[in-house]
């Protein structure tokens, strides 16, 4: 097991190195001039040159990269070119919103998706199964940038049940905070629900068809007990893996969703920063997201390995 963990960690470090080089190079190609952003429209050419030197933009690329990586290792992601705030401070401000949005949609997806999938599997080929599978197809196919506006149209503009956008800090007013997060969480979670349900249904069907279930049934255990205790436990394993793999998709969803609902999270931070050419913030935010995804995938792998005794850790 130690060898397995070690190998996965080494892999993760290599991937991170590649990611950071790619990220750095890619964003240096961005068009535009940050000095305009900082100095505004009424600055002279000389003022711009002075600032460019201050920002280190006149250094060779490799030097800029070296400096960036070194400071990243020191936990210093640089300063925003626009606001001068430390990138880490900007992100620590934004991260909780995205984490909350992610957790709410993920929990919602599991709480709805798993029971729905199990139900569909147990009642295989029933009307309920067809309806649930149909709903799954629907939520898998509706892009969140379309679902979001539809939800706003229906629940905010027509029914007035929820605010159309905006954000309230949880610490200021927890209830208002949750009310503001419901529509965004539904928007982000819709696709994950579909994936989880589909996976739960499939895994449950496999599991229900397994030998040990037949044995359990033969020993006279009740159907409900067989489903809940034996089949479900085995079915949950692949569901966990798939859910772990959905974190990337979930974060993609938060980008569009935070933009629609104007939530101050990491997604809207990235989009805003791209549009204002705030490279250090884009770099820092994308890097943080990638690290988070990699870590979550690692943890998912480890949980899976720990839960499933069939995995051979020393396989190539």
């Amino acid at each position: 097991m130690t060898g397995f963990i070690l190998r996965r960690v080494v892999q993760l470090v290599i991937v991170l190195a590649i990611v950071s080089v790619a990220l750095f190079l890619l964003l240096r190609l961005l068009p535009g001039d940050p000095t305009t952003t900082i100095l505004g429209t009424e600055a002279t050419h000389e003022q711009r040159e002075i600032l460019r030197a201050e920002l280190g933009l006149d250094q060779p690329l490799i030097v800029q990269f070296g400096q960036w990586i070194l400071s990243v290792f020191n936990g210093d992601l640089g300063e925003s070119w626009i606001t001068g705030e430390p990138v880490s401070a900007v992100m620590s401000d934004r991260l909780p919103v995205t984490v909350q949005l992610g957790v709410m949609s993920l929990l919602g997806a599991l709480l709805i998706g798993v029971p729905a999938g199990v139900l569909a599997a147990v009642r295989r080929r029933s009307t309920l199964d067809t309806a649930l599978t149909g709903a799954g197809v629907f939520f898998l196919a509706i892009p969140n940038f379309f679902l979001g506006p539809l939800l706003v149209l229906l629940f905010a503009l027509s029914l007035g049940w929820a605010p159309p956008s905006g954000f309230v800090n949880f610490t200021d007013d927890p209830i208002a905070n949750l009310i503001h997060m419901v529509l965004p969480a539904v928007t982000v979670g819709s696709m994950v629900v579909a994936v989880v349900m589909r996976q739960a249904r499939g895994a449950m069907l496999d599991s229900l068809g397994g030998d040990y279930i037949r044995t359990a049934k033969a020993t006279g255990l009740s159907r409900g007990r067989v489903v809940m205790v034996y089949a479900l436990r085995n079915a949950l394993l692949p569901v966990i893996t798939v859910t772990g793999l959905q974190v990337g998709a979930l974060l993609s969803g938060t980008i569009v969703t935070e933009t629609i609902f104007t939530l101050p999270g990491m997604g809207s931070l990235i989009v805003n920063s791209i549009f204002s050419r705030d490279l250090p913030v884009v770099q820092g935010a994308v890097l943080l997201i990638v690290v988070a995804v990699l870590l979550i995938n690692l943890v998912t792998d480890l949980i899976y390995a720990w839960l499933d005794p069939r995995i051979v850790y020393d396989a190539a």
């Binding site: 991937v15 790619a22 964003l27 974060l251």
Partner: peptide
């Protein structure tokens, strides 16, 4: 591995 580590839309946006 490096490219897949990016969430899809994050990479496309970048």
């Amino acid at each position: 591995d490096g490219l897949i580590a990016f969430p899809l839309l994050v990479l496309a946006l970048t």
